[in-house]
Design a protein around this nucleic acid. Structure first.
Lengths: 120, 120
DNA sequence: AAGGGTGCTATCTTTTTTGAAAGTATCTAT
DNA sequence: ATAGATACTTTCAAAAAAGATAGCACCCTT
């Protein structure tokens, strides 16, 4: 279903409908610092199956948050990067990261990756 | 599954695991300004079925974000309110709301409710 | 020519989430 | 006595999301 046809009771819901997918925040998070190839993302997010990862990448591309560019090398590679629109959501990711970090701190849980990446 | 047993690759995921439910941001959003009765929430969120709404309220109560208090009136009422922990997530909701608002503005979509509630 | 790397897609199954509809218990107003 | 309000729960069904597994097409190296 296209976003234009959805009804939102709250802008928060619109935000979640774009970045609420299981691995989407993680993909955006990794792309925040630099563009990455498909296999690099796959290695950074090993729990995502290829189907899941490519599905999430398609969704993010369809909603204009990431660019997908094929580089015709010997084995052709694909590079994913944030668009300007994708970059615009970084403050939201930072807010979620900050809150999540202090929450996990209180539980004595360390996230597997992303150590305090919200600092600029 | 309890949150303590989950593994997060990113604090953002921890945040989403608590507030990512379909109506949870909306519930928190409504409770941000004042405590509400069950039926008030039901009227504010008509798309949620009773099962869904009470499920989301249970989840939020279980994770310590909202208080549930039964008031023994003639027809007994229940009042829901944010805990201190629940209030701590308001900045995240505000960031999501701000981003969602400008995103929907660009699409010429007006959310059904919550007009610019992120301002204090 | 056989195996490995890249970047996926296709199928099928399972799990999770959501929804629709009805039921329940108590009290009050008509 | 009947109907309505409050605050849910229960049961069954449907839909959506996620996972497992396999396959493919291309090129390169050995």
């Amino acid at each position: 279903m296209k976003i234009e046809q959805k009804q939102f009771n709250c802008p928060v819901e619109a935000t979640l409908s774009l970045i609420g997918g299981k691995y989407k925040p993680l993909v955006l998070w990794h792309l925040k610092s630099q563009p990455l190839h498909y296999m690099e993302l796959q290695r950074l997010i090993p729990k995502a199956t290829p189907k899941m990862l490519s599905g999430q990448l398609h969704d993010l591309e369809d909603c204009g948050m990431i660019n997908r560019e094929v580089i015709p090398e010997k084995p052709p590679k694909t590079i994913y990067s944030l668009t300007a629109f994708g970059k615009s959501i970084i403050p939201v990711l930072n807010a979620m990261c900050d809150w999540g970090t202090s929450y996990l701190d209180g539980l004595d849980i360390q996230p597997v990756c992303c150590p305090s990446q919200s600092k600029k």
